[in-house]
Amino acid sequence: MADRADSLADLLERVLDKGVVIVGDIGINVVDVELLTLRIRLFIASAQTAREMGMDWWSNDPYFAPNAAKRELENTQLRDRIAELETALAQQAGKELPR
């Protein structure tokens, strides 16, 4: 499977960069979206560079990577399950020893 990568950065880039533009005298532009989009891109690029350099603290931060919290929970559940199985195995071994 390809990695799923929906993140805050993806959301910002899509919401800011694209969409129907209202021109003429009806709408008003309250946000400099071009400037914001440029800054988001720079942010993403520097984040990627930092990741390649091993500085990827945000990929485990639920604020920036919503899946991180889920992964953490899954890891905890897996660790618990392993501990449970190890205990069961140890008990099994204990039972078999006297024979």
């Binding site: 969409g19 129907v20 309250v30 946000v31």
Partner: peptide, 10 residues
Amino acid sequence: LPLRFGTVLA
């Protein structure tokens, strides 16, 4: 058809 972020109408 999503509108661009920050579209404000009077």
